[in-house]
Amino acid sequence: MRNPGKHKGRGACSSPAPRFRSVRHEAVDDGWWQDEAPAPQTVVMPDPARTVISRNQSPDVPFDRSINPYRGCEHGCIYCFARPSHAYLDLSPGLDFETRLFAKLEAADRLKEELARPSYRCAPIVLGANTDAYQPVEKDYRISRGILEVLAECRHPVSILTKSGLILRDLDILVPMARRGLVNVMVSVTTLDSELKRRLEPRTPSGERRLAVVRRLNKAGVPTGVLLAPVIPAINDPELETIVAESAAAGAICVGSVILRLPHELSQLFREWLQAHYPDRAGRVMKILQSMRGGRDNDSDFGRRMRGQGPFAELIARRMQLARRRAGLYRREQVSMDCGQFRHPEVSDGQISLL
């Protein structure tokens, strides 16, 4: 029987019921059925979204609006803070999150409609804040490219978060936008250890490949930094200094970091992952994480949720500061994002003009 703790090519070890479901089912192995369960396959379904710009008022992030072309993410990163959002679809934040995907097929049209409203006021949009806008299915669906085409047409500034090399496909759009000061990119680099990457974020490019993307984007004139997120104690935190140094060598304009967050079902999923892959240190990892979260698995309070608190969180912050200084990144480079060039798009309402 397949090991219930591991699924090849997937990050989650199980499919816990979403927190809003009133009826729960529990699988029990009675030893009778011996065939291996089939590997979970990716299914993509349409998401008929009426709007695509999401708003937030969080003081912890430097933006108030974002676009997520997809719900769920095939990358399978076990640490993804967006996993619990699948519960709103009555799906599991575990394996469902990385196999039951939803694509906003008409995102470009909906975006154009929103930007065309006379009341719309321009401010930088983040593309891929929740799930990666360049996850594998983007190669076929090209939704993110359609969104970029609209933003370029309107001269609307955009910041992109990704860990995928597929972003290089859209250099023909990004380079002209960068010349106008309308785009910057942050590439997530969590580890340079290929074995850890395979376990931690199974369907993502290698760390070396991501640094090559950073190098290529900056060489093309697209301002690009690196985000070490999340920092996981006793898992990837020993690589902190190396990742900062290698990022600087690849031309990154800045390197930021975020401490691991474990909201809602993610706490159970991460604990299962630790037991499946690193049982020898699972207790130590959770003990350190809880020391940064006031004794709990998660702390959602603004001002602390990204950085944590306590001695270990302070140590991580100090190490990042020193590593950036040694790499010549002691001052975060400010990238100009010009909102003054924005122009509302023209949207046809079906009426024939008399002029």
Rank of each mutant, 00 (worst) to 15 (best):
D64Y: 13
P84Y: 02
A103W: 07
I78T: 04
K104F: 10
R65M: 11
T99C: 13
Y79F: 05
K104P: 14
E74W: 02
S66A: 15
R65K: 10
I67R: 06
L105K: 11
C80R: 05
R65F: 06
N68T: 02
R83A: 05
F102P: 07
F102N: 03
C77Y: 00
Y79L: 00
G94S: 13
H86C: 14
G94D: 09
G72Q: 06
C80E: 03
N68M: 07
F97M: 12
G76S: 00
H75V: 01
E106I: 10
E74Y: 01
G94I: 07
S92I: 02
T99L: 08
E98I: 08
F102C: 05
L101R: 10
L91S: 11
L105I: 10
I78H: 03
R71D: 05
L89R: 09
A87M: 09
C77W: 00
L89Y: 10
I67W: 08
L91V: 02
P69Q: 04
E74C: 00
G94W: 11
L89E: 07
G72L: 05
E98Q: 15
Y88H: 07
H86V: 03
S66P: 09
R71N: 09
G94H: 12
C80V: 01
A87V: 04
R83H: 08
A103L: 11
F81L: 07
Y79A: 00
S85G: 10
H86W: 15
K104C: 10
C77V: 01
E98P: 15
D96S: 15
E98T: 10
L95M: 10
R65G: 09
Y88Q: 06
P84D: 02
L105E: 14
A103C: 13
T99D: 04
D96W: 10
Y70G: 02
L89G: 00
K104N: 11
I78F: 04
R65S: 12
N68F: 05
A103T: 06
D90M: 13
H75K: 01
S92T: 04
K104A: 09
F102H: 13
R71P: 03
P84N: 03
I67K: 06
G94K: 14
C73W: 01
I67C: 07
G76W: 00
G94F: 12
D96Q: 11
L95D: 04
R100M: 15
E106M: 12
D90P: 07
P84F: 03
C80N: 04
H86K: 15
G94E: 11
D90N: 13
D64P: 04
D90C: 11
S66M: 14
E98M: 13
Y88L: 10
D96T: 06
S66C: 14
E74R: 09
R83C: 07
I67T: 05
R65C: 12
A87G: 15
G76P: 01
F102R: 15
D90Y: 12
A82H: 05
N68L: 06
R100T: 13
F97Y: 15
C73H: 01
S92H: 10
H75S: 00
F102M: 12
P84W: 02
L95T: 07
Y79C: 00
C77L: 02
R100Q: 15
F81W: 09
G72S: 07
T99A: 09
P93E: 03
R100E: 14
R100D: 11
